[in-house]
């Protein structure tokens, strides 16, 4: 029985976002949509750009935590498309910002993405959010 869980780097994802859509107070919390206008991703096994048209649906809860729900399209440097989603938790009071990315692709070269689970560590930087994503081994 394996008692430790190992990981290895998958990619660093940088997102560019535009002005938010403030949906406001809903039964679930306060919903803010961050449109994704672009970005980049880079790892040992894949790299490329984030296409415009995605977004992150962020709900602020009364407890002070944020939950994230992102979907974007990645385009690799060899022109393959990857559908990426993540859900996540951001709790600034505890410096905790983790996501659970999932990938779908039809490209045989990147089919390994269909079969893995991953964990992302998020960081809000002046030039936009950065997610360090690791594959769960």
């Amino acid at each position: 029985m394996s008692l430790s869980i190992n990981s290895r780097p998958l990619m660093i994802l940088r997102l560019a976002t535009s002005a938010t859509h403030d949906i406001g107070s809903t039964p679930q919390g306060t919903l803010t949509i961050f449109p994704v206008t672009g970005g980049s991703f880079e790892g040992e096994r894949l790299r490329g750009q984030v296409l415009a048209g995605g977004g992150d649906w962020v709900t602020a809860h009364e407890s002070g935590t944020l939950t994230l729900d992102l979907r974007v399209t990645l385009e690799t440097d060899d022109s393959e498309l990857i559908h990426m989603t993540f859900t996540g938790v951001r709790d600034d009071a505890n410096h905790y910002f983790r996501t659970v990315p999932r990938f779908e692709t039809a490209a045989p070269k990147y089919a390994f993405l269909n079969r893995l689970l991953a964990i992302g560590t998020g960081d809000i930087r002046p030039d936009g959010p950065v997610h360090i994503i690791e594959e769960i081994l």
């Binding site: 869980i5 938790v89 983790r98 996501t99």
Partner: peptide
């Protein structure tokens, strides 16, 4: 147990 609401977990299955 509210700490559980705020965390991400990973499990290994056997």
């Amino acid at each position: 147990y509210s700490f559980l609401n705020r965390l991400i977990a990973v499990a290994s299955g056997d």
